[in-house]
């Protein structure tokens, strides 16, 4: 049986786990190819215009899987920890895809909700394995291996790899060009945002490689331990509300509060509900600290040139902020907000 996994949304967080699980059950896993213009266009044609970009991309991937798979795996993730819920779009994803992509092969849509108790969670896993094997033991074994692989995956990312790099290292058959990490980086930038935006090379216009080519050391949310992210969230907003907050507000607060990064760039999708409020909190925090912070909004019309111009301008400003103290910026700059970090404080882009 061929199981299709769309290379979008939670793929970047859970793919090794999913793949190990299905392969452990004897299924063949088929991942859609990286996003193309055509995929995005076909996704856009099926959904209403207001839908956020990542879901449109996802829909394009599901469409590309419609032929050649026996079933498509689209889990409905309600929550991955107590009382912290996912964005509604993750919850309604299988239903939305079933309605808008009628030609799609059967959808495997387990409900992942830890709030309803362990029993339900385990049952969801067994139910998911049911079409592949009748033996619960086999499902259990596959799930356990999958969990171990997930841990390895997370450890690999902590060591400084981006999710696609980590995936590549774990499943080496999909060989792509190894990314040279620049000569020696001049800046360190904290790049925050959802993995499905940052690492989808079509959507983000190869943001990570481009930054590295510019001589920037990129620190991404996956390179921080969960516990630390969580602590940063608690510092800023008492307790997390959405499951996807770790990589945005957690990482943002963590990097802003630390001297090792020269600035923080956040990438959000147009129409992203959770981000619309979370970024606001983060921006205010950055303003209080006087740290350079920029928000890049991506949608299906974003042009690469515009994105690069903004990035270059941002890096220029960070560079000026890092200049030796002897050369002071023009008086008009320092008037716009004094802070300990010298001229960096006026760098505040929204």
């Amino acid at each position: 049986m061929r199981v299709g996994i769309p290379r979008a949304l939670l793929y970047y967080q859970y793919y090794p786990m999913w793949r190990t699980f299905f392969e452990g059950l004897g299924a063949e896993v088929f991942v859609s190819s990286p996003t193309t213009k055509l995929m995005l266009a076909s996704g856009c044609s099926r959904l209403i215009a207001e839908t956020c970009l990542p879901v449109k991309v996802f829909c394009g991937h599901v469409l590309s899987l419609a032929n050649g798979c026996d079933c498509v795996f689209i889990p409905s993730i309600h929550s991955v920890e107590q009382k912290v819920y996912s964005c509604p779009k993750f919850i309604g994803l299988p239903d939305m895809m079933r309605a808008t992509v009628p030609e799609c092969p059967p959808i495997l849509d387990p409900d992942v909700d830890v709030n309803t108790g362990k029993r339900d969670f385990y049952q969801a896993i067994y139910k998911l394995g049911r079409p592949f094997t009748r033996s619960p033991l086999k499902v259990r074994k596959a799930a356990e291996t999958a969990w171990q692989v997930h841990q390895t995956f997370q450890r690999r990312m902590l060591s400084g790899l981006t999710p696609p790099e980590a995936i590549e290292g774990m499943f080496p058959q999909s060989v792509e060009e190894p990314e040279g990490n620049g000569s020696h980086p001049i800046f360190t930038i904290g790049l925050i945002g959802h993995p499905y935006l940052l690492y989808d090379e079509y959507v983000s216009h190869r943001l990570v490689p481009q930054l590295r080519e510019m001589g920037v050391k990129v620190l991404s949310p996956e390179m921080v331990e969960r516990a630390r992210l969580r602590a940063s969230i608690c510092e800023l907003v008492e307790r997390p509300y959405w499951a996807c907050e770790d990589e945005v507000i957690g990482a943002g607060a963590y990097y802003l509060g630390r001297g090792e990064v020269d600035g923080v760039v956040s990438v959000v999708a147009f129409g992203c509900g959770p981000d619309s409020l979370m970024i606001e909190v983060l921006q205010r925090y950055a303003k209080r600290l006087g740290k350079p912070f920029m928000q890049l909004t991506l949608d299906e019309h974003t042009a690469e040139t515009g994105l690069m111009t903004r990035l270059e301008a941002f890096l220029d400003m960070v560079r000026r902020g890092k200049r030796p103290q002897g050369i002071s910026p023009p008086a008009s700059w320092s008037q716009r907000g004094g802070s300990k970090r010298g001229s960096a404080s006026w760098v505040y882009l929204a």
Partner: peptide, 13 residues
């Protein structure tokens, strides 16, 4: 409301 998450899902379905 514009970009309302639950209603976007409803509207798609």
């Amino acid at each position: 409301p514009f970009t309302c998450m639950p209603e976007v899902i409803a509207q798609n379905i």
